[in-house]
């Protein structure tokens, strides 16, 4: 998929440049791409390294478990019919916590564990699976560290200033997603 996108971008750029008279710029840009990638990766290493370290402290000290406990009423409110302390419940809570704290590597395996557990449930199965997937397709990250890294590499004076807007925007979009998903299954045919 992404291979096709890259090829189409390159081919389109080249053909477009013939008509636009920018072929020389396109040729010059080829040598810059890799250089830009290196600069970007260095900033990513720095900022992601910092947050990876901090969030590992959060995991080891039990802070993550504390956040999971705080999330529990919200999870039970959104996912109707799951048992507190059950397999599906635990995986969902840990998946959402991992997303919130930006533990990308941990979030996906936990999410997969959660959908598999939800598939075994008998109450509201399809609806709860949809809800979990929708929540995972909406970003709910406390610290947008990758974005901060890119902003830093381009000389932003305040790489983290976007946090309030990101959090509000995420909150509104995840709420819209959850409400719509619930509406989709509101006609009583929710297995």
């Amino acid at each position: 998929m992404i291979g096709y996108i890259i090829f189409i971008l390159m081919m389109f750029s080249l053909v477009f440049s013939f008509f636009n008279g920018t072929t020389e710029q396109v040729c010059l840009s080829v040598s810059e791409g890799a250089d830009n990638a290196l600069k970007l990766s260095l900033s990513l290493c720095a900022v992601m390294g910092l947050w990876g370290g901090i969030m590992r402290i959060a995991q080891k000290s039990g802070f993550t478990a504390l956040v999971a406990k705080l999330l529990s009423p919200i999870v039970l409110f959104i996912f109707k019919g799951i048992k507190r302390g059950g397999e599906a419940y635990n995986a969902i809570v840990m998946n959402i916590t991992a997303n919130l704290l930006g533990l990308g590597n941990a979030a996906t395996p936990l999410g997969l564990q959660a959908v598999k557990a939800l598939e075994k449930e008998s109450v509201n199965r399809n609806r709860n699976i949809s809800l979990l997937v929708v929540i995972n397709t909406a970003s709910i990250q406390l610290i947008p560290s990758t974005v901060a890294a890119i902003r830093l590499s381009h000389g932003s004076a305040h790489p983290y200033e976007i946090i309030p807007a990101v959090l509000l925007s995420s909150l509104v979009s995840v709420t819209v997603g959850v409400i719509l998903a619930k509406l989709m299954y509101s006609r009583g045919d929710n297995v």
Binding site: S13, T22, V26, S29, A37, G52
Partner: peptide
């Protein structure tokens, strides 16, 4: 934790080279 994330950042470096080359071409084409 930092070491783990450095590995992740390093893992996406090759695909960034490819992608940034294509996006850079698109930008340069106008």
């Amino acid at each position: 934790g930092a070491k783990d994330n450095l590995k992740t950042a390093f893992d996406i470096f090759p695909s960034l080279i490819f992608l940034l080359t294509a996006v850079g071409m698109l930008r340069a084409s106008g």
